[in-house]
Amino acid sequence: MHKIDDYLSVPYVDGGRDMAGLDCWGQPRLVLHNVFGKPLFKSFGHVSPDDKTNLTNSYAQIVDQFKPCLAKEQAIACGFRGQSLIHMGLCVVVDGQLQILHTSRKKGPSIVKIADFKRLFFEVKFYEYTG
């Protein structure tokens, strides 16, 4: 069984879907599965993170497997600019505080306060994976 800290040393890799490298879609997908025991949702590893249209289309294909919710542990945090999905992270509890685990090309994996994550996007929506 993995722990959240295990994902802080996994490098950012475009299309990454395993512990050798993860992107912002692969990281929450794998953490939900390996840490919280949820089924894996569809990978879409072939979609480039730079292709916001296809990233948004991929999100639209599986959003019915998710229920909108408030920020809470295990909720996926989706960052939007306009109608386009730009980035994803996962709500986790660290040292008793709800925060967001995410990964990016520039900084790699990190855990940030929800307010800091929200400042990066026009809108942030939270979803519970119902798989």
Score class of each variant (00 low, 15 high):
residue 123 E to Q: 14
residue 50 D to H: 14
residue 73 E to I: 06
residue 60 A to P: 01
residue 28 P to I: 13
residue 65 Q to D: 15
residue 76 I to Q: 01
residue 32 L to D: 06
residue 39 P to M: 01
residue 5 D to A: 14
residue 33 H to P: 05
residue 122 F to W: 11
residue 114 I to E: 13
residue 127 Y to G: 00
residue 93 V to S: 14
residue 87 H to N: 05
residue 76 I to E: 01
residue 68 P to I: 06
residue 62 I to Q: 06
residue 87 H to R: 12
residue 19 M to F: 04
residue 25 W to A: 05
residue 11 P to H: 11
residue 12 Y to M: 08
residue 72 K to R: 15
residue 25 W to G: 03
residue 56 T to A: 02
residue 2 H to F: 08
residue 4 I to C: 10
residue 91 C to L: 06
residue 109 P to G: 13
residue 126 F to R: 02
residue 45 G to N: 12
residue 114 I to N: 10
residue 73 E to Y: 03
residue 25 W to K: 04
residue 61 Q to I: 09
residue 104 S to N: 14
residue 23 D to M: 04
residue 13 V to L: 15
residue 78 C to G: 14
residue 46 H to N: 15
residue 67 K to N: 07
residue 22 L to R: 05
residue 91 C to D: 05
residue 110 S to D: 13
residue 117 F to M: 13
residue 46 H to Q: 15
residue 42 K to G: 05
residue 43 S to V: 09
residue 36 F to A: 12
residue 109 P to I: 11
residue 65 Q to I: 03
residue 49 P to V: 03
residue 60 A to Q: 14
residue 109 P to H: 08
residue 49 P to C: 09
residue 93 V to I: 15
residue 15 G to V: 09
residue 61 Q to M: 15
residue 22 L to P: 09
residue 77 A to N: 04
residue 3 K to C: 06
residue 64 D to Y: 07
residue 95 D to H: 12
residue 32 L to C: 06
residue 40 L to S: 11
residue 104 S to Q: 12
residue 26 G to V: 08
residue 101 L to R: 05
residue 36 F to P: 08
residue 123 E to A: 12
residue 20 A to W: 02
residue 18 D to M: 10
residue 46 H to D: 15
residue 117 F to P: 02
residue 15 G to I: 07
residue 125 K to F: 00
residue 81 R to S: 13
residue 73 E to W: 00
residue 42 K to H: 08
residue 110 S to A: 15
residue 12 Y to V: 05
residue 118 K to D: 14
residue 19 M to S: 12
residue 82 G to F: 08
residue 10 V to E: 04
residue 97 Q to I: 00
residue 16 G to M: 12
residue 118 K to Q: 15
residue 111 I to W: 03
residue 76 I to R: 11
residue 121 F to Q: 09
residue 56 T to M: 04
residue 81 R to I: 11
residue 131 G to P: 03
residue 101 L to A: 06
residue 92 V to G: 07
residue 79 G to Y: 02
residue 5 D to N: 13
residue 76 I to C: 03
residue 65 Q to C: 02
residue 60 A to M: 14
residue 25 W to M: 06
residue 5 D to F: 01
residue 124 V to D: 07
residue 61 Q to Y: 07
residue 67 K to R: 15
residue 89 G to L: 06
residue 16 G to V: 10
residue 71 A to I: 08
residue 30 L to C: 03
residue 91 C to H: 03
residue 64 D to W: 05
residue 15 G to W: 04
residue 27 Q to A: 13
residue 30 L to R: 08
residue 18 D to S: 14
residue 14 D to K: 10
residue 18 D to Q: 10
residue 46 H to K: 09
residue 67 K to A: 12
residue 62 I to R: 04
residue 10 V to Q: 01
residue 72 K to Y: 00
residue 54 N to L: 14
residue 110 S to Y: 02
residue 1 M to C: 01
residue 49 P to M: 11
residue 86 I to D: 00
residue 87 H to E: 02
residue 60 A to K: 15
residue 99 Q to L: 07
residue 125 K to W: 02
residue 59 Y to S: 06
residue 82 G to K: 11
residue 12 Y to I: 07
residue 59 Y to A: 01
residue 117 F to G: 10
residue 63 V to W: 01
residue 107 K to G: 01
residue 24 C to D: 11
residue 3 K to D: 13
residue 88 M to G: 07
residue 107 K to D: 03
residue 106 K to M: 08
residue 72 K to D: 09
